[in-house]
């Protein structure tokens, strides 16, 4: 009985030490996404700026960069120049940038858009269900949807120009093939 107890103790302590050490490799704040690789959930939301609606179906076959943002979100302001640049570059091509207002009032969002001079289509997700469908944790989050309608990638936090362009170009190359 004592010999079993000895071995069991050694195995358990070693096992505990090893797994706890392995635990250092992970970052508990890094939650892997659930929707990457799955078809992008369709949505039809009221537009922020006029009486029309913004619908994902309308951009079928195109590459969609979906950006969740809010007027109260400081990193969203930081990433805005990158978005503006990308929009300038790809406007009118097979790439479209759509913004979705996340947990914000339409008035504040309109203010923000007008102040920063953003011209790409933005929609208001009033009940937040679209954000839930995509698995959004908090703004800013950017989703890259390929021409096949599948979510190819997601970026949490303020996005920089490099990541935006790389993502878009990868998807355009994939679409051409």
């Amino acid at each position: 009985m004592t010999r079993i107890a000895r071995y069991a103790a050694v195995v358990l302590i070693l096992g505990l030490a090893v797994t706890l050490t392995l635990a250092f490799r992970r970052d508990p704040h890094d939650i892997k996404t659930g929707t990457v690789g799955k078809p992008a959930p369709a949505f039809t939301l009221p537009s922020l700026t006029d009486a029309s609606t913004v619908s994902l179906d309308a951009y079928k076959g195109k590459i969609v960069v979906l950006n969740f943002w809010s007027s109260w979100c400081v990193p969203c302001k930081e990433e805005n120049p990158a978005l503006v640049d990308a929009w300038e570059r790809y406007r009118g091509t097979d790439v479209v940038l759509i913004g979705i207002v996340f947990q914000d009032t339409a008035d504040a969002a309109r203010d923000y858009t007008a102040r920063l001079g953003n011209t790409w289509p933005s929609a208001v997700d009033d009940d937040g269900h679209v954000a839930l469908g995509y698995g959004v944790f908090g703004p800013p989050e950017t989703y890259f949807i390929g021409a096949d309608g599948v979510i190819a990638g997601r970026h949490i936090g303020p996005i920089d120009e490099q990541t935006l362009l790389t993502g878009i170009e990868t998807l355009r190359k994939a679409a051409r093939q």
Binding site: T19, L20, L22, A23, R25, R26
Partner: peptide, 8 residues
């Protein structure tokens, strides 16, 4: 600990 262990 289980979530830790499973992820590790």
């Amino acid at each position: 600990l289980y979530p830790l262990i499973a992820e590790a």
